[in-house]
Design a protein around this nucleic acid. Sequence first.
DNA 1: CCGATATTGTTATGATCATAACGATATCGA
DNA 2: TCGATATCGTTATGATCATAACAATATCGG
Lengths: 155, 155
Amino acid sequence: MPRTSTKAEAPVRRLAPDYRLEDQVGFLLRKAYQRASSNLVERIGSYDLTAPQYATLARLYERGALSQNLLGRLVAMEPANIRDVVLRLKKRRLVATRRDPTDKRLILIDLTAAGTALVEQLIPIETECTATTLAPLKADERGLLYELLSRLAEG
Amino acid sequence: MPRTSTKAEAPVRRLAPDYRLEDQVGFLLRKAYQRASSNLVERIGSYDLTAPQYATLARLYERGALSQNLLGRLVAMEPANIRDVVLRLKKRRLVATRRDPTDKRLILIDLTAAGTALVEQLIPIETECTATTLAPLKADERGLLYELLSRLAEG
DNA sequence: CCGATATTGTTATGATCATAACGATATCGA
DNA sequence: TCGATATCGTTATGATCATAACAATATCGG
């Protein structure tokens, strides 16, 4: 008997023959996010903004000045990551930073006039982009998706 | 009239006063994926595997040897990205590569015996992890979420 | 046959992402 | 008051991610 198969490999006995990657929510969520992010970049990419950068600007627009740390939590970014994003936005003069006078640990971030104007220009585009992403869903399904995703995100 | 406000800032007139970041699917999807990914790393992180790395191994387990490019498409990764993942897995001897004899452009990737054994060890853990991620949802809501996410991902 | 076209893998660049370790500052409780 | 504890921002490391440009190989049409 030859040590290596000649014509056909011996059939491999698999312990999990019916496992499917598609059954894992994480994989589906990753693909869906890729699609949403891609849709956004297609439309606002010409402004040289990424999805996380837009989220950061939008959050500042909603809430006004925030400490860097709180801002990070409100856009779901770790301290190390929000720092880099803020640095890039600051370099482009879309946000400005100042020290909190009462708590010397904090750095307060706020939109500049240019940043505010840009957000107001982008909001309708982003809303349109969300509609594009949701296009495969019927109206009643969209609200349901929000409900389900919100609960998943909270945990 | 002073050029700078003294006591209170003049109320800023916002063009989109009721805009909410939470209404954008992309943002919700990103947060939900963060949660799912975090759940996975909590459980398989001790194996020094990330979610994309696990997905790559799992896909190879499902389909057998694949070209690097096709493998990338099947796990939703760009050619440049799947390359790096394969390199890391190869360095750990979880996958092996060989050239396709008929098409000299292709690199065929396959699980090693160690890689196969690892996947079979991880599959039940991953399945359990998916259950954890889906815990906030009732049974009938889970199937619905899959349906909606699949349609979103396809576009 | 053979040149235009397409596909595969690589390289480079820049932007997330998560984690751990660290100094500086605040806060809380004994 | 003062020391333990917590929070904030920084630094470093390593792993995704997307995009563009490129060489090598296949494929297709005339």
